[in-house]
């Protein structure tokens, strides 16, 4: 569970982007965050994902206050408790699809090789098992996003954050990604999706409008 209380954030020398956001996201929920462009949806997601430090307010993860933790502690928390899916997949183009999926093991102090079998299971589940040794530049946008989803899910994170995960995808890939997010939420995780897409909003348990 993740909870924000009066969260406020502004970029340096910029007007306030997030002003007094309060909300909670329960375990097992698939929540959409929507709103017009520039309203701070992605900023909120990065705040919830501990990549930004709020100017005011507080942020709680499973009952622990996390907004005042050190950068290092928040990085460890991101590696162990969070999964991320970015709008354009954000894969390392110099490494294979399999290596991309197992990369996060390194940040949890594990050997990426330990996760090879789990990675292959996830790749089968999302239909990219045949592209294991391909480089991200050699796969389609839909496949890249599925690979990014595999990378986010491989640590079985308690909180999964997705920023426009279906923004560039065709309907069939959108369905696969949404199904993956839904299944992860059903397993007891908190899943938060920033989206413009009305069909994605409809697929979620509830939505938060900014």
């Amino acid at each position: 569970m993740i909870e924000a209380v009066d969260l406020e954030f502004a970029y340096p020398r910029s007007p306030v982007t997030i002003a007094g956001f309060t909300g909670h996201f329960d375990a097992g929920e698939l929540v959409a965050v929507t709103g017009p462009s520039g309203c701070g949806k992605s900023t909120l997601l990065y705040l919830l994902g501990l990549m930004l430090t709020p100017r005011a307010g507080s942020l709680w993860v499973d009952g622990e206050r996390v907004d005042q933790e050190s950068d290092s502690t928040r990085a460890h928390r991101r590696a162990r408790q969070f999964g991320f899916v970015f709008q354009d997949a954000a894969l390392d183009t110099t490494r294979s699809v399999l290596d991309n999926i197992t990369e996060t093991a390194l940040y949890r102090g594990q050997s990426p090789r330990q996760l090879n079998s789990s990675a292959r299971r996830l790749m089968e589940q999302f239909g990219v098992e045949l592209r294991a040794s391909a480089k991200p530049g050699e796969v389609s946008g839909g496949q890249a996003q599925r690979v990014a989803l595999c990378r986010a899910l491989i640590s079985n994170p308690r909180i999964l954050l997705a920023d426009e995960p279906t923004g560039n995808l065709d309907p069939s890939s959108t369905a696969v990604v949404l199904d993956g997010l839904r299944r992860h939420a059903s397993s007891g995780a908190t899943v938060i999706v920033v989206t413009h897409d009305a069909s994605v909003v409809r697929a979620c348990d509830r939505s938060v409008m900014l």
Partner: peptide
């Protein structure tokens, strides 16, 4: 820089 930003987002500490 995008590569390093991704690593940070995915949980890599600065020291790592």
């Amino acid at each position: 820089r995008r590569h390093f930003g991704r690593r940070r987002a995915l949980g890599a500490t600065r020291s790592l």
